[in-house]
Nucleic acid binder design. Structure first.
Length: 292
DNA sequence: GGTAGACCTGGACGC
DNA sequence: GCGTCCAGGTCTACC
């Protein structure tokens, strides 16, 4: 089943895919020829499908692996629109970025959208798994969760969706710690899954609720395992660019760019991008760090 | 509000 | 092959 997804222009599927490392984490996959983006999705009906996105003029083409009923199709299309931020309006950012040499590529290459997972729960879990570890460690932990707890695609049981909150809520800390190698993050992920399942938190409501960014940040920081860096990262995924995800890499790059490699702190990173206001996060993210 | 130490894993390094 | 050190953010206890 093939569908065309209309996007607000400018749009580039490649730019969305390459916006950050999510495409390297299961259940995302990019084939060797890099011609598409695949994602295994479990629908609320329990049906598991493979979505394949391909570049197309004015948007993206979507191929769904299975035949499905109208209600499932509606859910898939809503998920796809959310994941690719099809309707995201970056025009005011492009307007102020066009005069900055280090950001001139942004509009030209339709950059600024951040690839999302189908659920905010999945984005939060993955963000927790990026903290205090190497990228290889993150990939390993995510793979462990998907392979152990994810629902399988009927036509290819090797391919699995990311586990839902209710699936993960049934796990125990030791299994997450030992078998999925989550280490000290295991209780954070388990608590998140249990709270989401019990309705004590409702992460998916953030797709439609739009609290002011400081309040949203406060909500994210209240989640165990989410600190300043992780909250800023999630805010960017949610389309809020007011905060910069300051990690060791950010400190290093800003130091080289403006402080001759001298040790700096968070304040210097924030000061460097202060002038970009509500767009400072994406200005930092898209900044051309190559030597000029 | 700021700081120190613990948390956990894998990779780099020296022996 | 083994042991040690370090990097990577967040949490908690303490001041």
């Amino acid at each position: 089943m093939d569908y065309f997804l209309t996007a607000r222009l400018p749009f580039s599927l490649t730019s969305v895919i390459r916006s950050h490392g999510w495409f390297q984490l299961l259940p995302f996959a990019v084939p060797e020829d890099a011609s598409s983006l695949e994602y295994i999705l479990e629908l609320s009906s329990g049906k598991v499908v493979r979505l394949t996105f391909r570049e197309a003029d004015g948007g993206a083409n979507l191929t769904i692996s299975e035949e499905m009923e109208a209600v499932d199709l509606e859910e898939v299309q809503a998920a796809a629109a959310w994941m690719l931020e099809l309707d995201f309006d970056l025009s005011s950012f492009y307007a102020i970025a066009q005069d900055e040499r280090k950001l001139a590529h942004a509009e030209t290459n339709a950059r600024g959208r951040i690839l999302r997972c189908a659920t905010i729960f999945e984005d939060v879990v993955k963000t927790i798994l990026t903290t205090n570890t190497s990228w290889g460690g993150t990939k390993r932990m995510v793979r462990g969760l998907v392979e152990k707890y994810g629902a399988a695609l009927a036509s290819d049981p090797e391919q699995k969706a990311f586990p839902t909150a209710s699936q993960l809520a049934k796990a125990n800390v030791e299994a997450l710690r030992q078998e999925c190698k989550l280490g000290y993050r295991a209780p954070y992920v388990l608590e998140l899954a249990q709270k989401q399942t019990l309705g004590e938190i409702d992460l998916e409501a953030l797709k439609t609720n739009h609290p002011p960014t400081p309040e949203l940040r406060k909500q994210l920081l209240a989640l165990k395992g989410i600190g300043d860096y992780a909250a800023a990262n999630l805010l960017m995924i949610l389309g809020r660019y007011d905060y910069i995800p300051i990690d060791s890499w950010a400190l290093s790059m800003v130091s080289k760019e403006w402080h001759a490699g001298e040790p700096i702190g968070r304040a210097e990173v924030e000061a460097a991008f202060e002038r970009w206001g509500e767009w400072r996060g994406i200005a930092y993210w898209l900044w051309d760090w190559s030597a000029s």
